[in-house]
């Protein structure tokens, strides 16, 4: 693949596209988008494979044990869609994306640690940027807007501490 990577789409145009996808999910599936639920479903599956009784007795994991979750298929689609889009645009590339002053190892540690923090946050909040913020934001859910406000506030508050990783 020698052609140069294309530029990203205009954010408003991409936003309209994303909004129409979300609207289509409301009409077709009667629910919005999601991501963190797929992680919950996978974690529940792992616990159920090792200790089935424990998984059933745990109110967080047991909610995911009634068959494979809708969100697992949706996330599978996200992978395919992300791959195809990057491929068509010449953006497929094995790399560790990091800031100019960050080491590869430091970047991976931050990625893992930040991911774990988001995991805990998403369990408590019952969703993430997709299922809670985007979906509930469009449906004017009070909890979703609380989550959006809190997440943006904390990210801005924490950004100066993380400056060395990104700038």
């Amino acid at each position: 693949m020698n052609k140069p990577a294309q530029r990203y789409a205009d954010p408003y145009l991409a936003g309209i596209g994303l909004g129409l996808v979300l609207l289509a999910a409301f009409v077709i599936a009667g629910r919005g988008l999601g991501a963190s639920g797929a992680f919950g479903s996978a974690a529940a599956g792992l616990v159920a494979a090792i200790a089935p009784d424990r998984a059933r007795a745990n109110p967080y994991f047991s909610q995911y044990l009634g068959g494979v979750d809708w969100l697992v298929f949706e996330i599978l689609g996200v992978f395919i869609g992300g791959f195809v889009s990057a491929w068509l645009a010449g953006r497929l590339k094995f790399e560790i994306e990091r800031g100019p002053r960050a080491s590869t190892r430091g970047r991976l540690a931050c990625a893992f640690g930040g991911g774990a923090l988001m995991g805990t946050g998403a369990v408590l909040a019952r969703g993430c940027t997709s299922g809670l913020a985007l979906t509930g934001g469009a449906l004017l859910s009070v909890g979703s807007w609380i989550f959006i406000g809190a997440a943006f506030a904390a990210a801005y508050l924490f950004a100066p501490v993380m400056r060395k990783e990104w700038r």
Binding site: C110, L124, A125
Partner: peptide, 21 residues
């Protein structure tokens, strides 16, 4: 929980640079 979860999530977001999706 959505306020506290949102705060944790936002902090994790700027550390990780990506959200779950």
């Amino acid at each position: 929980p959505q306020l506290a979860g949102g705060l944790l999530f936002g902090a994790g977001f700027v550390v990780a640079g990506l959200c779950p999706g």
